[in-house]
């Protein structure tokens, strides 16, 4: 067990952000945390990374209590990418990536092969001498990913990576490129816990999913069990249908218009004087819903 949470609750200023989260993550698993905005995903990542102490419950990293680990030792065991990362002063991309060596006390020269490898893997060859602030949002995100990958590749023992929305600013090609990179590392023993909003990305690359709602676990487990319409609807209040990806074979989620959207369509329809009955608008999806594909 690389990371274990027991009955973790977090209260800040009288508001309960997390309630009774149990989690046990084994080496080499790729976990996704999903849930609607404000469900407590980032709070959970912060708690698991030792940044926020639980008001109740305990978290263990490699059989040691997180509260008793000094920050340097923690940094040698795991890397964390937070959600918002602006960098002051115009550091070069390469300097930023090299910061990943800091907790391990390895000089840059000794790790130059590894640095070059990661720069290529993240597609940053041409950007490495640019200043970080001159990059686009997605490029900045990849630079930070490269940094945490470097940090984790020198970890003592089994490496662990915690990522808060690592793909939110990436285009579709880069999303898949980065997640493929992560899952190839997972094959080699890396453990990943990532917040990913796009359920289809999660379904394609993760092997375990935890659904959060209002700070509580809705469901958690292997993705084959988690990717069913009832759990997703319960989490988000959004009707979905689950299909099978035609080529990859993993679960694939399609959203359906929910009642709220119907109201909007109706209002718009009346305003434009449309006489089209509302029912026909949702007809195509209604047909799909009668084709259960979850089997």
């Amino acid at each position: 067990m690389i990371l274990e949470a027991q009955e973790v609750s977090i209260k800040i200023g009288g508001k309960t952000l997390l309630r009774g989260i149990d989690l046990s993550i084994k080496e080499g698993e790729f976990w996704t945390i999903a849930g609607c905005n404000g469900a407590g995903k980032s709070t959970l990542i912060r708690a698991l990374s030792g940044d926020l102490h639980p008001t109740q419950g305990k978290i263990m990293l490699k059989n040691r209590w997180l509260t008793e680990l000094p920050s340097l030792e923690m940094a040698q065991m795991r890397a964390v990418l937070t959600q918002h990362n602006n960098v002051n002063f115009s550091f070069k991309v390469r300097d930023l990536i090299t910061l990943g060596l800091m907790p391990h006390g390895i000089p840059e020269e000794a790790a130059s092969d590894k640095i070059a490898e990661i720069i290529v893997e993240c597609g940053l060859e041409e950007l490495q001498d640019r200043s970080f602030e001159s990059l686009s949002g997605g490029e900045q995100q990849r630079a930070h990913l490269a940094r945490v990958l470097l940090q984790v590749s020198f970890s003592k023992g089994d490496p662990l990576l915690l990522l808060d929305e690592p793909t939110s600013a990436l285009d579709i090609a880069q999303q898949h490129r980065m997640l493929q990179l992560l899952s190839s590392r997972v094959m080699n023993g890396l453990t990943v816990i990532a917040i990913i909003h796009d359920l289809n990305l999660a379904a394609q690359y993760a092997d375990h999913i935890l659904f959060l709602k209002n700070g509580e676990t809705v469901a958690q487990g292997r993705k084959q069990q988690m990717m069913c319409s009832s759990i997703i609807e319960k989490t988000y209040g959004q009707p979905v249908s689950v299909w099978t990806h035609p080529t990859v074979g993993c679960p694939y989620i399609l959203a359906e218009p929910c009642p709220y959207h119907h109201e909007k369509v109706k209002a718009n329809g009346h305003r434009h004087g449309s006489t089209k009955p509302l029912n026909t608008m949702s007809q195509p999806w209604a047909i799909n819903k009668n084709n259960p594909t979850e089997a």
């Binding site: 940094a75 937070t82 602006n86 002051n88 910061l99 800091m102 907790p103």
Partner: peptide, 20 residues
Amino acid sequence: HRAYDALAMGDRQAFHLGVD
């Protein structure tokens, strides 16, 4: 100097890089 470099990314990232 290393800690200051890490701090350029903010307190939380510096903490995750092992800076007290």
